[in-house]
Nucleic acid binder design. Structure first.
Lengths: 326, 326
DNA sequence: CCCTTCTGCACAATCGTTTGCGCAAACCGC
DNA sequence: GCGGTTTGCGCAAACGATTGTGCAGAAGGG
């Protein structure tokens, strides 16, 4: 079923078959007649060149790696889809790996992808310690960070304008009359969260509001912990009138907590959350979310990476800010 | 950075390095001293054998393909995670592809995975026409179907007991006093849906209830269409008192429709849905769901596939039935 | 001291492609 | 009928690993 056996079968050399199958028959002046024979027989026998051998010889796999922290998070699932589609459109395939929010697993994924000789890597880092990324940088593999960005790594990166997004959210709440606005944050060492927190503070300051330490809670990116922190927020006297949840997972925890206290959104407390959710509209009343431009981020990441791979420099790009929606 | 250059660097042949790095130095009676030199230097230089070349030579990639119809569906995301973990535990890596609920894309994914010489494939088929799967069967590639099963394809398969699950759900509703129970189905040609519909009918019959044609609606696996069908259900006179949604996506559409009609679950109409959902508990009141044993299905699929790959026959397995939960 | 046995490693073929180079036949003009 | 050009294609060497076979040198026996 391989190119060589097809060649034998036709009494023709493998070189000729290779050239014809790669669509460069004319370029090498292979007789039309010969080309037709080869193409017909290849189709009939279902012969397709072995990508492994091909990659080995060409030293290029036309494969991109994508590492995300959690495929079951709708945001990352959407990102993965966008990356995959965009890569496929440019003739690349994507190897997807899930680092499970663990630096250790992340390092393992990186090793595995490098062993498979991917042409480039799109990485949404788990954040925090980045020692394990040093060998990656040293390897000179084309690399683009996406969503979360470890700034100490000098690489191309693609991220939403999280600062403006969060500030915008606060402005919105202020306009609605809120004065005690709490913020439910995730991992502090994540660039995404850091930016959003910065935006939160900026929004408050801008509105002439004080930044109260006990209204900025969290520190883990987990639904359970978000729930606990929200419970504590709700027990404060006076209670905050609005909560800004910095991610979809955190929002889930917050909603849980609000329900648990027998309170109602938005009568008792308003909630506005980052990340779009398929179910946001189903809550009563619908949850206000800040959609991230995940499609754009995916294609931008692929473009940025391919720009590094092909020698057509295009620098790193950035993205629209999250936009509020119903 | 490859094995050969390391060999030169040490003034040793590549064969020896290969044997040592593959951990079989003793087996080939390589001197302890030589082994140590090789291992040390390999670690220092960060040398790891090229998986491409290795796979080519060994005619085995230790890679499994997984094709699912939609990674952004939480059920499939969870399945992918389970498969990935289970495969990794057995030394295999997984190539994930998303067929986007399209037979055409599915065929393309299959071709791509075969070109990459995967050792086996786990497939959640889009269903319907299966002509495009013929070449796959012909290729003799180890294959296991998961979740959805195209019965006409004689392959190993892993699926939940959807029949019993649906029947159980109907029993539950009947016990709660419902007599007019509607069913919101998806693609009729999907084995999963077919089984669930069968279970639905069985449950009704068992309870001595008539099966009313206009209470069994649907035909597309889409939230929007589910919404429309539910609207029509709700406008029936008399209105059904309960709806069984055969998947998470359909449930979303149903909830939308119920809200749109200004009705309340479960006061006006009860809803029970297949597939677990992270947000099911957040609705007011919480949505009753039938969780599928997705972890088990993932590991069972991998086991079934590996049984075909390694010559340790273990036959195909099946799975626990979906269990009702809060 | 020679012959065998064991130890420790190297040689070379192989997996399935791609590609630079080169060679034979056909064709052309004179 | 001979040199030169064109046409059409094959040879063989890569790519980076694995592995059966074989070959030296040391060790051991008689």
């Amino acid at each position: 079923m391989n190119l060589k056996s097809l060649a034998q079968h036709l009494g023709i050399s493998a070189s000729t078959v290779s050239r014809v199958l790669s669509g460069r028959g004319d370029e090498f002046r292979i007789a039309k007649d010969t080309q037709k024979r080869i193409l017909d027989e290849a189709a009939a026998m279902g012969v397709r060149p072995d990508e492994l051998a091909r990659s080995l010889r060409l030293q290029s796999t036309r494969t991109l790696g994508l590492i995300i922290p959690d495929i079951s998070n709708p945001f990352f699932a959407a990102l993965a889809r966008a990356v995959e589609r965009s890569a496929r459109a440019q003739g690349y395939t994507v190897l997807l790996a899930d680092s499970q929010e663990s630096a250790e697993v992340e390092a393992e994924c990186i090793r595995m992808l490098i062993d498979r000789r991917i042409d480039g890597l799109i990485l949404a880092p788990v954040g925090g310690e980045s020692k394990h990324l040093r060998p990656l940088i040293a390897s000179k593999l084309p690399l683009t960070q996406v969503d979360r960005v470890v700034a100490s790594l000098k690489t191309a990166s693609v991220a939403a304008d999280n600062f403006s997004g969060a500030r915008e959210a606060v402005r919105l709440l202020v306009k609605l009359g809120h004065r005690r606005i709490a913020c439910l944050q995730g991992k502090e060492d994540s660039s995404v969260i850091a930016e959003r927190v910065r935006g939160y503070r900026a929004g408050l300051t801008e509105a002439g509001l004080r930044i109260e330490k006990n209204l900025l809670v969290g520190g883990e990116h987990s639904q359970a912990i978000a729930r606990e922190h929200t419970l504590r927020l709700l027990d404060l006297q006076p209670r905050p009138t609005a909560i800004l949840a910095l991610s979809n997972l955190l929002a889930l925890g917050a909603i849980e907590a609000v329900r648990e206290r027998g309170l109602v959104i938005p009568a008792d407390v308003s909630l506005i959350a980052f990340d779009e959710q398929p179910w946001a509209a189903l809550l009563s009343p619908p949850l206000t979310t800040l959609a991230q431009p995940v499609e754009d981020m995916g294609t931008a990441a692929v473009d940025s990476l391919l720009a590094q791979i092909k020698p057509e420099p295009d620098a790193s790009s950035s993205c629209k800010q999250p936009s509020p929606c119903a």
